[in-house]
Design a protein around this nucleic acid. Sequence first.
DNA 1: GTGGTCTAGACCACG
DNA 2: GTGGTCTAGACCACT
Lengths: 137, 137, 137, 137
Amino acid sequence: MFQIDVMSRRPVYEQLVDQVERYVLMGILKAEEQVPSVRSLSVSLAVNPNTIQKAYSELDHRGVVYSVPGRGCFVSVDARKKIGERKMENMGEFRRQVRELALAGVDKKLVMDCVEDAYQRGGADDDSGKESDQDIR
Amino acid sequence: MFQIDVMSRRPVYEQLVDQVERYVLMGILKAEEQVPSVRSLSVSLAVNPNTIQKAYSELDHRGVVYSVPGRGCFVSVDARKKIGERKMENMGEFRRQVRELALAGVDKKLVMDCVEDAYQRGGADDDSGKESDQDIR
Amino acid sequence: MFQIDVMSRRPVYEQLVDQVERYVLMGILKAEEQVPSVRSLSVSLAVNPNTIQKAYSELDHRGVVYSVPGRGCFVSVDARKKIGERKMENMGEFRRQVRELALAGVDKKLVMDCVEDAYQRGGADDDSGKESDQDIR
Amino acid sequence: MFQIDVMSRRPVYEQLVDQVERYVLMGILKAEEQVPSVRSLSVSLAVNPNTIQKAYSELDHRGVVYSVPGRGCFVSVDARKKIGERKMENMGEFRRQVRELALAGVDKKLVMDCVEDAYQRGGADDDSGKESDQDIR
DNA sequence: GTGGTCTAGACCACG
DNA sequence: GTGGTCTAGACCACT
């Protein structure tokens, strides 16, 4: 279910955080669902338990999952909202990137198409229906 | 001329690389022009010379500048092209990011506005006018 | 009668201990009264019997209840006193916390209001009236 | 400068976080000041570097310190404010405690004296003058 | 030298 | 079985 690239410059635990959030957004991981246990993921990914723990801990901090000692780690009910809010707070970084693209002379239409594509496909993939209309502005 | 933010998570040398590229794109640094020496930048930015050196090495590696031992470091003639090509190669990463924004429920209009802003300001800020039509598609 | 919150960081057995003590203080659980059996609570709260047992053991250790093997678990006659004494012993911790609030610049009035509220509501909620005058100083 | 109690039930890293925050509130650690390096604290406290790291990481998350790889860890300029805000958010826990004291029959005057003491001594100890008047309500 | 990540393994509290 | 903490020691990127 999860895949990590040990060669990547991106830390393993961040890759894991990203993937969990992505799966939540895609509706593959649903609210209140249990995510794989630290130990099981540790063996299936051949990654040290501490690293998995760190990833889950970060997701807990972000409010995407909540972990109950002795029971497991679960997707929180407002995981999608929390992820969205976080993305919103980091829009500054996105703006910076777009400006660099513009400055570098990348065709505006090309960038716009990127956006169009993303929102068309997003509407198609997202089967979580009722919740997906709560746009974050 | 250059500014670094020690508070930023971004490594100092990367901030430096970014700024040099930005100044090249904005036409402030022109082809064949000499960039500040490692030592002078080191003192004016209060940054370790090794850090400056690392930034210049990276720029050299990217083909944005070339260094002549004993004489200094100069903007290469095809610096703009090299930077543009690099940005194009990384468009995949950009697409992925936009998709995540869409998936996270960020308002489409907000993203579009980001792009509009970037391209409007780019036209205003960028006084290297005549050269900016070498779009990369 | 009892409620546990699995989302809470607080261990289930501690939540249980707290609630039993609270009910004793509020006069809902009276001296010599029998508390629910481990098995019945286990099913009604959907909690592992071991967890219930652990809570009762702790309450026994504190002298709040006493268990008669084969017959059940009962509120001890001096349960209120024991609970009060325990709270008094922990006043040092409370003082430390208040000091930190003060140091952190939290408005004094806000803290005072907290105390006022607690004692006003205590008088209203607590219908064990006559017994509550056994103040511990 | 720091002291940890290995016998305490409280995790070592949390004890460290508390102490750093306390020192900031007391004005012993001032804004922009560097806190001891991970390694030096590790040896002076006879604690594993990872544990120190975890504490600093948490303080970074809270905005109390900011860490710059390769340079060190520094008290952020709005550290006091951040700590205060955090305390405010957790006032609910404080209210709960006071209510339990009230319920347990602890003399109201005793509690009030606790508060009075804290705010009188707080005013005396706090020599950071100008900043301390920014009450958080 | 700094912080940051990771591994290998251990112990604890909780259920 | 679960998550959480901790140790011992390693390597990396950065300054």
